[in-house]
Simulated scan of single mutants.
Amino acid sequence: MRGLDGAKILVTGADGAIGRAVVARLNEEGARVAALDLHKPEQDGLACAVAADVTSEEGMIAATATASEALGGIDGLVAMAGIQASAPTHELGLDTFRKVLDVGAVGTFLAVKSVLPGMLAQGGGRIITFGSTAAVCSAPQLAAYAAAKGAVLQFTRSVAVEYAGRGIRANCLCPGGVETPMLAAIDAARVGPDHFKEGHPIGRYAAPAEIASVVSFLLSDESSFVLGATVMADGGYSIG
Rank of each mutant, 00 (worst) to 15 (best):
P41K: 02
A17C: 10
I239R: 11
V23H: 07
Y237T: 09
G118V: 06
P201Y: 06
I239A: 13
L153E: 11
I18M: 15
G19P: 02
A212Y: 00
A164T: 07
L77T: 11
P88T: 00
F217V: 09
E162T: 14
G3F: 04
G203H: 07
S216G: 15
I83Q: 01
D102R: 03
A147E: 08
P140Y: 06
V100I: 12
S238P: 06
V11I: 08
F97K: 05
G167W: 12
S138N: 03
E179F: 03
T64H: 04
A146V: 10
Y205R: 09
G93A: 14
L116G: 04
A21P: 07
D187Y: 05
A111I: 08
S114E: 05
S86C: 10
I61P: 00
G19N: 03
D53S: 03
E29V: 06
L110A: 01
R20A: 15
V159R: 02
I83Y: 00
R157Q: 15
L218H: 00
G82F: 13
I186N: 06
Q84C: 04
A135L: 07
E179I: 07
A233L: 04
S220P: 06
I61D: 14
I18R: 00
L46K: 05
H200T: 00
P208R: 00
P88Q: 04
L36N: 00
R190Y: 03
V23W: 05
I83E: 04
C172I: 07
L10S: 03
D102P: 01
V22L: 05
R157M: 11
E198S: 11
I211W: 03
D221E: 15
F217D: 11
F217H: 10
K40C: 14
L116H: 01
S220I: 06
G107W: 05
V226K: 00
D75W: 08
A134S: 15
A21C: 11
R126S: 15
G76S: 13
G59P: 09
T129S: 13
I127Y: 00
F196P: 08
A63E: 03
M1A: 14
D102M: 03
S114T: 12
V152Q: 02
L4Y: 08
K8N: 13
L71D: 13
A14G: 13
D194I: 07
I202T: 12
G107V: 10
V191D: 15
Y145N: 09
V54R: 01
E69N: 12
V78R: 00
L142R: 13
A184P: 05
T230K: 11
A189D: 15
L142S: 14
V23L: 09
M119Y: 02
V226I: 15
G45M: 12
V215F: 01
L46G: 12
